[in-house]
Amino acid sequence: MSVSDQMMKGLLDGAILGLISQGETYGYEILEKLKERDFPEISDGSIYPVLLRLSKKGYVQTELKKSDTGGPKRKYYTITDKGLEELAVFRNKWSYLNKGMNNLMRSVEDAK
């Protein structure tokens, strides 16, 4: 896995956790919201391993509800207290990282 792929993998966990914190949602809707917000380089299926991971870590909880598509019951996600704590840590780290990376990348551009 390339450096940029690894970076995207980590960021997607935080992005999805952020979306779920805004209210109960499900897989396809999460994907649509990510696309609406121009989250880059995401293949549709990549959100499901992330959702499994978030669920396994106890950051989100799930509930099966009747689907309006007439298909199988739909799995809805909501954030847990543990997930909110993790999201706060993520946001904090992201803001430092974003600032630091921007400074660093500017100096890389200046060097050119």
Binding site: Y26, G27, Y28, L31, S43, D44, G45, S46, Y48, L52, S67, T69, G71, P72, K73, R74, K75
Partner: peptide
């Protein structure tokens, strides 16, 4: 996970997307 992906695929195919959209 099968039920969740089935739900996703039903919606995706209704919007004209294929299985490849999920699997890459």
């Amino acid at each position: 996970i099968e039920a969740e992906l089935r739900d996703h695929l039903i919606e995706a195919e209704a919007n004209g997307q294929s299985v490849e959209s999920i699997t890459g």
